[in-house]
Write a protein that binds this DNA or RNA. Sequence first.
DNA 1: GGCTGTGAACCACTTCACAGCC
DNA 2: GGCTGTGAAGTGGTTCACAGCC
Lengths: 223, 223
Amino acid sequence: MVLRSAFEIPKATLERLTYYQRVLEEFLIIGRKTIMSKELADLLGLTAAIVRRDLSYLGSFGTRGTGYAVDVLDNQIRRILGKNTIWPVVIIGAGNLGSALAQAPGFTSDLNQVVGIYDIDQPKIGRRLGSVSVKHLRELKNDLKDTPWNYIAVIATPKEAAQDVATMLTEMGVISILNFAPINLSVPKGVMVRNVDLSTELSILAYHVKRYKDQALNALKNV
Amino acid sequence: MVLRSAFEIPKATLERLTYYQRVLEEFLIIGRKTIMSKELADLLGLTAAIVRRDLSYLGSFGTRGTGYAVDVLDNQIRRILGKNTIWPVVIIGAGNLGSALAQAPGFTSDLNQVVGIYDIDQPKIGRRLGSVSVKHLRELKNDLKDTPWNYIAVIATPKEAAQDVATMLTEMGVISILNFAPINLSVPKGVMVRNVDLSTELSILAYHVKRYKDQALNALKNV
DNA sequence: GGCTGTGAACCACTTCACAGCC
DNA sequence: GGCTGTGAAGTGGTTCACAGCC
């Protein structure tokens, strides 16, 4: 029997929860006590219906006629997303990107902390980046050995190395990977990979430009 | 009358086209002449059905019984994505992230080229990054003035500055923005913004870890 | 009266399954 | 026989519209 708990949140909703939270945190700061679905929607470029539907997955926290209590909602989202725990992040690859990420604000915040950055390139080892120093990749296994599943691993290596690193990580027991290499990692079931793929993003934007130009061209023809 | 051209490609498909292309380019290199939907699917962790459906939007390029001609398909995808043109990229913000991006392989490749990086912080101005030097933001307008819509603008500023930069860009006539700041940009209709949101990614991965742990805990209870 | 919470309709994308062509 | 291309069914997510509560 599958116990369908309250934690049955659609992927699409999940991707929006951080957005809601950002607005809520701002409202907390300025001291606003309640917020309506329409407000959230307008601030985020969504529809009120979708906001209500999303929030309804978290439980019935709204008050009809009034809206949602900002603090209650904020807390609930934090709880769901596990934002009351600090999740440790390890970065593999201390090149330009890895180094930038190690020092990026969103990467060491109230809910995440970069606890290690690894590389195999001797000259990079020992270099200090933000709050950590680059270690040799061979130390990773030992560093994670107690609770590998707890860590979020970030792959910021050249694409040639990415699959090997991913395999190594999953063999160690890591189940959450954020991949910056332009390659489709193959990983065992149960492991979640999120890809940040710059060239795909650029392609889609380029497609948008191209369509725009094609349209303009057609418009000219049809005059 | 709307002339529904062949360029009516679903968003979801569009996001996969780069993946197909990567495999195709590899096949070109190793000299394989044809490829089947099942192969592409397996290499990318997709289903054969979806590959065929995706490719069918590009036209009927496959040969029943044989598969797809690698070169033909590759060319068609390049054409659709506008990959036979080099799309110029400008980066706003020369901090850690912006600097890393300016030198990232995917960012200056056969189809994109970083043609400028801008900041307002005097000490950074003039610094050489990859193939370009940091300029003052005030020069941007002049640099883009002839064909602003052609450029893909990357926002790599602190989040406080991001909306202002976006507004500035759209007023100049930029229609494609890749945003790394953790904020929902509001832009006029017709402008496409793609967000790369590290904290959302980390949240989703953290949620995955949390679920995994909750499950393990429940399993223990139920023994 | 105002706004939430939610069935029901709708839409976009995926999967199935098979006819059509090599 | 093998594989593509595509109607038809299925699925997940969004939008509509309104009953229910303040």
